[in-house]
Design a protein around this nucleic acid. Structure first.
Lengths: 259, 259
DNA sequence: GATTGATGGTTGTCCAGACATCCGGATGTC
DNA sequence: GACATCCGGATGTCTGGACAACCATCAATC
């Protein structure tokens, strides 16, 4: 059907994109699609042609199209779903990290409805990392709360919160009754707390995270580690949060600051 | 040479890893390598076997090995270099973002020798984004400094700094004479300055960034945007920084803080 | 009416091969 | 000695094909 191995440095894509000699095919295809998506050719949420259709259009093998789609997917422009198709990604959600970051207010600020799903709530023994963050000895009792955060029903965060059980008597009960962490802490006597330190990294998501956050496997998650202290400086919480890019991006804004 | 299509749900990898039915081959291979790298089988910087050797060892096609390596590379565990081989990644460098973040001190804190390479230093007209950040009108004169930061000779940051030229008379000359930004600002009368806001995102790197930062194409860069103000609150600098993951990770630490 | 099963369409994985591109050392040349 | 060239080895790109896994829908069955 086609000429053999195809000396790839000449000729044209059957469609509009010329085969520039210096650039690989999949990059050219990715760039073409990127422009079409950016140029209102496809609105957010719209479905792209299938891989077979695209490979026919650009007159390349399906794998080459897949390479281009993977690139766009990693960049966050599209979302690929097995058995369904590929879709243009939705808008991003700024996550403003400050001394007083609260989930509910974050989502409300974006005119969306916050909700949450508790995945775990139980007592565990502190490992070395948790102990160091909370300033307690390894093995001490720690309350773990794992929560999936949603904005208008779509997942935007996956957070694990660790509370020092001995310091905060009754925190497990309080967490069971109060969906909001701020309320639960208030119930055990912590009127106010501020974020002391936040650490940000990016990495590939785990399978579980992909599932819960409903994100593509090949997009990075932003990972934050933060320590919250009360007004007296006592550590009341250590939390690790995962956020799907590019649905969420992190904005940091230092405020008046305590200590 | 091999049995046909190979019903992949049974049998063993020729080496040590069993073909668990539920897991894809490339994931199993990635996991095996991940453990071997983690378990001191390969120290940081060590070279892994070639793709051909690995595909022979696991008795799979070279493409399957490549898929596994790509995964590890995206996760930051290894670094793949065309024509040379694949290597175990080095340690990470914490980038502590605080009100008083200075490049030189950052690197010194890690017992490394800071150095830099100026890529651009010229006057430009402010576009909308820069103007908004600096609080000046679009089109106003702005001094641009683009710099590659190195620690012990390896690139760790790529930053673009924008200074309001009319406010900071003589800044171009000062920058030409002083390698350190802190010194240059001091030369034009800015004794001290603090970071007002920092924004963090992750995205795929551009080709230029891959080159300058000597990083893998398929690892994300952390992107920061920050605004620095002097003691009176006047904006003296707006900067955009790119940092290669996982060589660099960002730690935020709010300090005493001003305003 | 609800569950089950079949079917077609779509993305995901794996194989096999060919050639391009890049790196680095060896070799040859001036 | 300095420089250019060649060449083997390594990763990068592209093709072509086969099948697996998953999704949505519709038909058949209970």
């Amino acid at each position: 059907m086609k000429s053999p191995p195809t000396s790839r440095s000449a000729g044209n894509l059957s469609d509009d994109t010329p085969r520039q000699s210096g650039l690989t095919l999949w990059r050219q295809i990715a760039e073409t699609l990127r422009q079409e998506i950016g140029g209102t050719g496809y609105p957010p949420g719209a479905r792209l042609p299938t891989e077979a259709e695209l490979s026919a259009r650009f007159a390349v093998n399906r794998h080459t199209v897949r390479r281009a789609l993977e690139e766009l997917s990693r960049g966050g422009l599209i979302r690929v779903e097995q058995g369904r198709g590929t879709f243009v990604a939705e808008d991003v959600l700024d996550y403003t990290v400050g001394p007083r970051t609260r989930f509910t207010e974050w989502i409300h600020r974006h005119n969306k409805e916050p909700s949450g799903r508790v995945l775990q709530r139980r007592e565990i023994a502190a490992d070395a990392m948790i102990a160091a963050a909370l300033g307690i000895r390894p093995g001490a009792r720690v309350m773990l709360l794992e929560r999936l955060g949603l904005a208008d029903g779509t997942p935007v965060s996956l957070t694990r919160h660790y509370f020092p059980a001995t310091r905060l008597r009754g925190i497990l009960h309080a967490l069971a009754e109060n969906p909001r962490i701020t309320d639960a802490l208030k119930a055990v006597g912590v009127e106010d707390y501020v974020r002391q330190v936040t650490k940000v990294t990016a990495r590939a998501p785990t399978a579980i995270e992909v599932n819960l956050l409903r994100m593509a496997r090949n997009r990075p998650v932003l990972v934050t580690e933060s320590i919250n202290v009360d007004r007296s400086g006592m550590v009341v919480e250590f939390s690790i949060g995962c956020y799907p890019t590019p649905r969420v991006q992190i904005v940091f804004e230092p405020g008046e600051g305590p200590a």
